[in-house]
Amino acid sequence: MLRQVSPGQYDAYEALLRALGDARLWMLLWQGGPGAPDAQYGNMEVGGHGYVPCVTSAQELAVSGWNRAHEVAVGREVAGALFPGRWGLWLNPHAPGGGVGVPWLDLRRICGGLDVLPAGPLRLSEPSLEIPAFYAQLTHGAQYTPAVRSLRRAWVQPAVGAPYLVIGLDLYDGSPPSVEAVQQMMRRSVSAVPEGLPVSTVLMADEYDPVAMWLRANARPFFDRDAQGAPAPAAAPGYGYGYPRAY
């Protein structure tokens, strides 16, 4: 699979990501030993982004020339440890051509589900669809759903798969009752969505989601309770509930 990956070959890259989840990886330790409290992965920088190097087999480890300790771990566990710190994974950097890098956003997809989180690189823009009935229904529902602070929207074109509309949900809190109220609001609103148009949601508080990041930086709310001067409900602890969720 590594040999099949090349720029623009998204299907081959997606197949590699699927295999990585359950694959064994030989992680190179810069210091410490396997399981030691002071164990630390090696690291490298490519294009201004941080990656942790590893090799994909005992044979690759032997030819890599690595003379420090290593540990063997499952790809999904490694991905879960690295992506919160925005570290990617670099496979077989010693190989001819330099190996293959997996950015942290794709490690997040391995953990969250490749069929759930969109395949990058993403093309994001303001929606050009004329669907006023849907937006009106959403705005009406948000007015009567106190957990909703604001709503934003984006048109997402993933590298693999069909484009879809995303609604960004900015909530005062992520408590289970609030989440359930917002989900009910979305279920009521999708009755106004034209047939065949996929709609997903993203939690604006998700600091790792690329769509939420784009929305925060580029999209103005089409519903904003604070701008209307309405009182905000008391905040409760947040418990984000994932992205994207298709209704």
Results as ranks from 00 to 15, higher is better:
32 G>P: 09
54 C>D: 04
125 S>M: 13
10 Y>A: 11
103 P>S: 05
219 A>T: 12
2 L>E: 02
108 R>D: 08
164 Y>S: 09
149 R>P: 03
52 V>I: 12
117 L>I: 06
190 V>I: 04
82 L>T: 01
186 M>E: 01
33 G>A: 14
237 P>S: 06
190 V>L: 00
160 V>K: 11
129 L>M: 13
87 W>G: 00
93 P>A: 02
135 Y>G: 03
99 G>E: 03
94 H>P: 02
227 A>H: 11
55 V>F: 10
22 D>Y: 03
136 A>F: 05
160 V>S: 11
164 Y>P: 06
195 E>M: 04
60 E>T: 11
147 A>W: 00
170 D>F: 00
58 A>P: 14
144 Y>W: 08
213 M>T: 15
169 L>Q: 00
75 G>M: 02
173 D>K: 00
216 R>I: 11
101 G>A: 13
52 V>T: 13
204 M>I: 14
236 A>S: 07
132 P>L: 06
81 A>K: 09
90 W>N: 01
117 L>E: 12
142 A>C: 02
80 G>K: 07
17 L>G: 10
108 R>V: 05
9 Q>Y: 10
173 D>E: 06
197 L>V: 12
121 P>C: 09
16 L>V: 11
56 T>W: 10
139 T>K: 14
16 L>M: 13
155 W>A: 07
236 A>E: 13
226 D>M: 14
194 P>L: 02
238 G>P: 03
235 A>I: 05
19 A>L: 05
231 P>Q: 14
2 L>Q: 05
246 A>N: 11
156 V>K: 04
127 P>C: 07
216 R>V: 12
127 P>A: 08
32 G>Q: 09
64 S>T: 10
242 G>L: 06
132 P>D: 06
33 G>V: 13
8 G>N: 02
196 G>I: 03
113 G>N: 06
151 L>S: 08
206 D>N: 15
22 D>E: 12
52 V>F: 04
103 P>W: 04
100 V>S: 04
114 L>C: 05
229 G>I: 11
111 C>V: 15
216 R>Q: 15
192 A>V: 00
33 G>N: 12
139 T>V: 15
26 W>L: 05
193 V>W: 00
178 S>L: 01
232 A>G: 04
231 P>Y: 12
56 T>H: 10
193 V>T: 04
179 V>T: 01
209 D>K: 14
58 A>R: 15
16 L>R: 09
150 S>R: 07
197 L>I: 10
87 W>Y: 08
1 M>S: 08
186 M>I: 11
35 G>H: 15
161 G>C: 06
21 G>F: 01
97 G>M: 02
127 P>K: 07
190 V>T: 02
37 P>N: 15
84 P>C: 08
114 L>D: 05
48 G>M: 12
241 Y>V: 13
68 R>I: 02
245 R>E: 08
239 Y>N: 10
210 P>E: 15
132 P>S: 08
160 V>I: 15
108 R>G: 06
12 A>M: 11
41 Y>C: 15
127 P>D: 03
62 A>K: 15
138 L>G: 09
116 V>L: 06
196 G>C: 03
15 A>S: 13
222 F>Y: 15
60 E>Q: 14
151 L>Y: 07
170 D>R: 01
9 Q>N: 14
219 A>G: 07
129 L>Q: 11
153 R>L: 02
13 Y>W: 14
153 R>S: 09
113 G>Q: 05
163 P>T: 11
111 C>H: 02
121 P>R: 10
38 D>S: 14
118 P>I: 03
24 R>G: 01
76 R>S: 03
247 Y>M: 10
